[in-house]
Design a binder for these strands. Structure first.
Lengths: 205, 205
DNA sequence: TACTTTGGCTAATCTGAATTAGCCTACCGT
DNA sequence: ACGGTAGGCTAATTCAGATTAGCCAAAGTA
């Protein structure tokens, strides 16, 4: 019964490293510890495995969206949290975000898989843009909006300020996905980036 | 004789849209206007076509690197160019860079192809990082270095300033590669980004 | 003019990977 | 105890797509 999920896991791992077309059904089966034909007891064909991954992902991210929405409401209700934003807090926020996206297995693998498949059809392109481009920007934009209201950040264009915060994070994320050995260097730049960001947009400066 | 190059062109186009593994030799041949077996008069096999594209690319970019180096020397010799950097000049610089990378056929296709193949082997990962991550950053960093020296930009960390300039450009570039219809939106953000950048780092503010 | 090379074509061939057939066993509910 | 089903296996089967064989004409060259 658990096999069905193991298949998804192993398939996702492989797809994220080599791309859908370069993964053989037999490879997935091997990793799961069964023979290729047995896969067909669980999924109609190779494509169905891919689709199931996408479905599963949609499920997870919708779930997460709800959590974030609630957090958002909390944050707006209790804007006091941000009254005392310090450089340290901003650093912590940025690092946590970065490391979560980078190390969370499901996120990382799914992002890499989408990276490899994004041009195959418009549907996947939209999913990628939503998850790794638009949603983070609008979520962080919302948080920064509160901070501006609270007076701890100052700008006359929250969207661009958010872009200035997020784009470097995205840039560093793509580096680490491609060359994991560069993570230390990326973390160093991340810190420098956020400190500079705080100096630019923070109230205290 | 020209066929050999046509093959590379059409192959690059197809690889950049569908990825190496999803392109059939016959498809390339079709586009060139010949039959699949005839391809083998020009290239040993499918892989050799891919390799030839990489070689050709290396050739072009080395060539371009020389030009940029010369420009760099010019710029440092004649730092006066930057004495009067205005918002308009910065906008022009950013837009030109962005649109060149986005619309130049060879650049765009090659970048998209590398995007799809970047995880296949460490070699390609390095090429991608070099061309679209490290080189632009260090080239722009050099220019900004001159500008800081000339006093038209101010910062105590040129690298991070350059990151703040380039990362949003990179971010917008990936959006347009994925969803070309978002180009207008991206151009708008690009302008807003650069204006804001000028306000932050420019001398006049 | 004959010889060779170049680059095209059609008709195989080869291979590898997805999928199907058909069998078997363990377990589950009755 | 027993029929059914879930999930595994081995042995085909299928098929697409890369590559090779072998032929031919045009164009260049001695």
């Amino acid at each position: 019964m658990d096999t069905k999920h193991r298949i998804l896991d192993e398939a996702l791992t492989l797809f994220s490293e080599k791309g859908y077309a370069n993964v053989f059904v037999g490879e997935i089966a091997d990793r799961v510890g069964i023979k290729a034909p047995s896969l067909y007891k669980h999924y109609k064909n190779k494509r169905a495995i891919f689709d199931a991954i996408i479905d599963e992902m949609n499920r997870r991210f919708e779930e997460q969206a709800k959590v974030l929405q609630i957090n958002g409401k909390d944050a707006s209700a209790d804007a006091g949290i941000y009254k005392t934003l310090s450089e340290d807090k901003l650093l912590k926020l940025g690092r946590e975000f970065f490391l979560y996206y980078l190390h969370d297995d499901y996120n990382r693998k799914f992002r890499k898989m989408l990276t490899l498949e994004q041009f195959h059809d418009a549907e996947l392109a939209k999913v990628y843009s939503k998850l790794y481009v638009d949603d983070p920007l609008s979520y962080q934009g919302m948080l920064f909006g509160f901070m501006v209201t609270a007076g701890v950040l100052k700008t006359d264009n929250v969207q661009i300020m958010t872009l200035h915060f997020y784009a470097p994070i995205y840039y560093l994320l793509t580096i680490c996905d491609r060359e994991p050995e560069r993570e230390p260097e990326a973390l160093k730049m991340l810190d420098d980036h956020i400190k500079q960001f705080d100096r630019i947009y923070g109230r205290n400066n």
